[in-house]
């Protein structure tokens, strides 16, 4: 029963170009590692059996089937959709930054979005996708069908990052279009004016949305360490500044801490989940943290 969970690191998944396959590997590994499943199927209509996985509650094992066949299986039921979830993916130029790891922030965020969509649709929730930069570029309304998942995955696969960041306005724009209560998962590096971002988040909350923010950072952004003279080029605007490594470290470290604190404080006051995800950590870990946080918050 104590099967050791092996996490899939981004460098292992990076060679898998097919987002569908990559997502499936992540999601199945993640669900297998959950000690308590966050989604419960209590529908009266039986759907199918599936093998029992270590970590699941033993209450759902079909003991009769076990007595007949000697195999531990879990019964799955057809559940009704009861949640409308939006995945808000930042696809601005800053998300393409990578300090040399196997995946840049956008790739990581896209995989994370696909995994979440998969999980949500697997538990019969309706999932919509909203990919944004300074101008809206993709908006798929929520549905809970399997075909919709395929659509999301294919659109995510073809979606390219670029443009400048306007996170706050994008959130507000989405908030104006959402009518039904649901869940919004924002996946972004949040390199925008923090007050604008907070305004957008507040607007989403006003529209009775449960909001979770996944702050995606590259390891270098998480822990800046560059000595010597630097000529820093902005991936979004193309501008550059010449800075001294030590000075840059001082300013970046203090600046990003201040930035995080501002947003995190606002999230706490708005009852918004805030999670920092670094692109060098395994997807399962990141997903588990997100799911556990989601269970605690809502």
């Amino acid at each position: 029963m104590n099967k050791q969970i092996s996490f899939l690191n981004p460098e292992h998944l990076a060679p898998i170009r097919n987002l569908n396959l990559r997502t499936k590997a992540i999601v199945e590994g993640t669900i297998a590692g959950l000690h308590k499943s966050p989604y419960h199927g209590f529908s009266a209509q039986f759907l199918e059996y599936r093998p029992y996985l270590p970590g699941e509650s033993t209450r759902r094992i079909d003991w009769r089937k076990y007595a007949k066949t000697g195999r531990s299986v879990v019964r799955l039921f057809e559940d009704e959709t009861n949640l409308f979830a939006w995945i808000l993916l930042d696809k601005s130029g800053s998300m393409t930054f990578s300090s040399g790891g196997p995946m840049n922030k956008y790739e990581y965020a896209r995989t994370l979005a696909a995994s979440l969509a998969w999980i949500l649709i697997r538990q019969r929730d309706a999932v919509g996708l909203f990919a944004f930069d300074s101008a809206e570029s993709l908006m798929l309304p929520p549905h809970s069908t399997a075909i919709h998942l395929t659509t999301i995955l294919s659109r995510l696969s073809s979606l390219k990052a670029g443009g400048t960041t306007d996170c706050g306005r994008s959130l507000e724009r989405l908030a104006t279009t959402i009518g039904k209560r649901g869940l919004c998962i924002v996946i972004s590096d949040l390199f925008d004016d923090p007050q604008a971002i907070i305004r957008g988040l507040r607007h989403l909350r006003f529209k009775r949305q449960d909001v979770m923010v996944l702050w995606v950072l590259d390891p270098m952004e998480n822990q800046f360490a560059n000595a010597g003279s630097l000529d820093v080029h902005d991936l979004e605007t193309g501008g550059s500044v010449a800075v001294d490594g030590l000075t840059a470290w001082e300013f970046f470290t203090s600046g990003i801490l201040r930035h995080r604190k501002t947003i995190e404080d606002a999230c706490r006051s708005l009852r918004i989940g805030f999670e920092r995800v670094v692109t060098d950590e395994p997807f399962q870990k990141a997903l588990l943290r997100v799911l556990q946080k989601r269970r605690r918050l809502f």
Binding site: S94, F191, N226, S229, V232, H233, L235, F251, F252
Partner: peptide, 13 residues
């Protein structure tokens, strides 16, 4: 010896 660094944002620099 000035190193070129492509970075996500110049906000903090």
């Amino acid at each position: 010896q000035t190193r070129k660094l492509d970075f996500s944002t110049l906000r903090f620099f």
